[in-house]
């Protein structure tokens, strides 16, 4: 079941209609969502440094960074 999602303010979000019956969304603004995203990225970055000193980049020519 691949779902349609909303793309808003640079992030994906569930269709609010899926959160109407059993479990409901809470009152939350964009700043709170930004806080969550920022903390997630901090945490994931930290995990890489925890296991190895450096994350190796893909071999040259194998990946073009997105514009």
């Amino acid at each position: 079941m691949a779902e349609d999602v909303i793309y808003k303010y640079g992030h994906l979000e569930i269709l609010p209609t899926r959160m109407e019956e059993y479990i409901k969304q809470q009152e939350m603004n964009e700043a709170e969502r930004e806080r969550i995203v920022k903390a997630r990225n901090m945490h994931l970055d930290w995990y890489h440094r925890h296991f190895a000193y450096e994350v190796l980049k893909p071999p040259e020519g194998e990946w073009e960074p997105k514009a």
């Binding site: 609010p16 959160m19 969550i36």
Partner: peptide
């Protein structure tokens, strides 16, 4: 709160933390 997966890995997606 920050380490709760319901927040850190999906709170922004589900709008619930």
């Amino acid at each position: 709160e920050l380490r709760c997966p319901n927040t850190s890995m999906g709170g922004d997606f589900y709008r619930r933390s």
